[in-house]
């Protein structure tokens, strides 16, 4: 059953990915940007311009460009997407897939920690709020949910830098590190295995890098938790209140189960939809954490995407969107499987 569900979902995902790729491919070409002029400069001669356009393959009709990108009936050297090659960046000339594999884990790492922590904070808070509706805990979580869901996360990031780095430093407290990357330049970087700096340094037994990495991840993760937790708490609270009014909870209560156990049952049912929300946040933050990455100079996929967008680097834009969409779809799938594991009412 599970296998059939997964294959069906993967089939749909592939269709979606094809749709997204085509859409992005044509969208960036319809918009009135001139990547050739961006590369050769505005004062370039006609010949230089044409040569650059030819080298990039932009002198071909769109149909042929698409075939070249896909790698079928290509009239250019190199493979296409169908052979697993996303092409070379027009700015750095490096293979895009390699660059993405280097940058993606950086973003994945801090988003994962942030969402995990936010979820762990949200569960007890939502439980406290929902079991006593209208009381202080409920009101606080309600206002918090409304407030944090509507905040400019990049501004809070800056404020945290000011407070925990600059101000703590002034006061002589142990402060957060300067927002300049993932590790102190004095600390040797662990050999890349997963790309997650905390996991890599543990695998390498490099505790100094582990501590320093955690120290540098502290503020970006805190910023994200701060912003994301509100929405998760809000949703968990709503679900909890709804579930607590349902018949099977009434039954569990009347059967004389201790209230803690009833609360646990209710939480299990309330958690499943909130996990879907976490999945959606994952997809959203993969591309949407750009400002936070910029503030802390983390150099993840968000920074890569804004750099390639501002440089009109078409292959890099296409590759980034494709990879982000792919990872998000994969995460949605995992979340749905987890959903079924938690909630016995869901079957494939």
């Amino acid at each position: 059953m599970l296998l059939r569900f997964v294959t069906r979902r993967l089939a749909v995902a592939i269709i979606q990915l094809i749709g997204i790729s085509l859409f992005v491919f044509f969208m960036i070409r319809i918009l009135p940007a001139d990547p050739v002029a961006r590369l050769v400069g505005l004062n370039a001669t006609k010949e230089a311009y044409d040569l650059a356009a030819h080298n990039l393959g932009l002198d071909q009709p769109w149909g042929q460009q698409l075939l070249n990108y896909l790698g079928i009936y290509s009239n250019r050297p190199g493979d296409g997407v169908l052979q697993g090659d996303l092409g070379d960046s027009w700015v750095t000339s490096a293979p895009i897939l390699e660059e993405l594999v280097r940058f993606l884990p950086i973003t994945l790492e801090f988003i994962t920690y942030a969402l995990l922590i936010a979820f762990l904070i949200a569960v007890p808070m939502a439980m406290a709020a929902a079991t006593k509706p209208g009381k202080t805990a409920d009101r606080v979580t309600f206002v918090w949910g409304l407030f944090a869901g509507a905040q400019p996360e990049f501004w809070w990031g800056l404020m945290f830098v000011f407070f925990f780095f600059f101000q703590f430093h002034e006061w002589g407290f142990p402060s957060a590190p300067a927002p300049l990357g993932r590790l102190n330049p004095m600390v040797s970087e662990p050999h890349t295995i997963t790309g997650f700096i905390l996991i890599d340094s543990l695998l390498a037994g490099n505790f100094r890098a582990f501590l320093d990495g955690a120290h540098h991840l502290m503020l970006p993760v805190f910023t994200l938790v701060f912003v994301v937790s509100g929405a998760i708490i809000k949703m968990l609270r709503q679900n909890m209140i709804r579930v607590l009014q349902s018949d099977y909870i009434l039954y569990a209560r009347s059967a004389g189960l201790p209230s803690r156990q009833v609360g646990f049952y209710a939480m299990r049912a309330a958690m499943a939809p909130a996990m879907t929300l976490v999945g959606i946040f994952y997809g959203f933050l993969l591309g949407g954490a750009v400002p936070i990455e910029l503030i802390y100079s983390l150099g993840g996929i968000g920074e890569y995407s804004i750099r390639s967008i501002l440089a009109f680097d078409y292959p890099a834009i296409q590759g980034t969107v494709l990879i982000i969409a792919m990872v998000s779809l994969l995460i949605y799938l995992v979340i749905d499987i987890l959903h079924a594991a938690i909630d016995p009412r869901v079957t494939f």
Partner: peptide, 24 residues
């Protein structure tokens, strides 16, 4: 509707960045 769904499954921030940066 399928096109609208597709649009909704896009990473919002990146789509907005691409649309704005590439159209001036």
């Amino acid at each position: 509707m399928r096109i609208s769904d597709l649009l909704q499954s896009f990473p919002v921030f990146i789509t907005a960045m691409v649309l704005v940066a590439l159209s001036g």
